Amino acid sequence: MNLEKLKENWKREEQYSFKGWDFFHIEKRWEHEQIPWDYKDILLRYIKSSDKLLDMGTGGGEFLLTLNHPYKFTSVTEAYPPNVEMCKNKLSPLGIEVRQVFDDSDIPYETNSFDIVINRHEAFSVDEISRILKSGGYFITQQVGGKNNNDLSEKLIDGFKPLFPKHDLKNNIKLLLKNGFKIILSDETFPKIKFYDIGALVYFSKVIKWEFPDFSVDSCFKNLCKLKKELKEKGYISGTSHRFIIVARSQK
């Protein structure tokens, strides 16, 4: 396949629309090594049916609905406008409260509103979590760490510098302890990620803008072509993810 045809195909992937937090478009074209804990299982250890629950950065609400928490006690935040609209169409009719967030340091809910705040891969302000949680309430978060996919970003983007190099388990525990939380559970891992075609990597890189800043097929075309050699030799493009989980209890 000539270079112009390659670029055309990759740009098609780059322009493919993305909604919710669903990577169905590249299903079976990529693989992520499992992490050693089950986020949902951990949540269910702490969530009681009577709890007022907030899911931060719910995406399209796909994961939240699998928890089967009483809708009348469930609230969500979401920042990405297309997802906010999706939530209003899908979650609001169920009785789930949906509010758009514009700033991590300003969650649009009252002080002491929630028994439990859950957060999977969403930015947060420890001060705001402390404010909206009731005393004795739980904050449970699984985070994408600051080293996530850095090796892939370096392969694609010349002069790449990570945006959040200090976003790791150790530093977040320090922040939570400083703000009066007790750490109940914590863990950190660096699973492998693989892409089985360049187009899948292009799609992924365009979606995860904060990890691949200024990525485009045009600006990174030379490096994308270099990765074709790795793909041919290994059968996949490899990278390293970064995840950590914290269960913390408010002691204010």
Rank of each mutant, 00 (worst) to 15 (best):
N150K: 07
W210S: 10
V76H: 07
E97R: 06
P165M: 08
Y71T: 05
R45F: 00
K252P: 02
R131N: 12
L152R: 03
G180M: 02
W21E: 10
D38F: 03
K209D: 10
F18E: 00
D214F: 10
T77A: 08
M56V: 12
Q143F: 06
P82F: 03
E78T: 06
L201Y: 03
N148R: 01
R249M: 14
H32F: 11
F221T: 00
L67Y: 11
N172P: 03
P162K: 01
I157Y: 06
Y16K: 14
P81W: 00
D218M: 00
N2F: 02
E122R: 13
W30C: 08
T141F: 10
L185D: 06
L94H: 06
F23H: 08
K19M: 13
P213V: 00
K209Q: 10
S17F: 06
N68P: 01
E230M: 09
S17R: 11
D151T: 05
N89K: 14
T74C: 13
L175F: 08
E233C: 07
W10C: 09
G20E: 02
S75M: 04
S135K: 15
F221R: 02
Y46T: 05
L177D: 09
K192Y: 07
L65V: 07
N172A: 03
C225K: 15
F63L: 14
N68S: 11
R120K: 15
D41M: 09
S250I: 04
K19Q: 13
C225M: 15
S186G: 04
T58F: 11
P93C: 03
L163M: 11
D151C: 05
K182V: 02
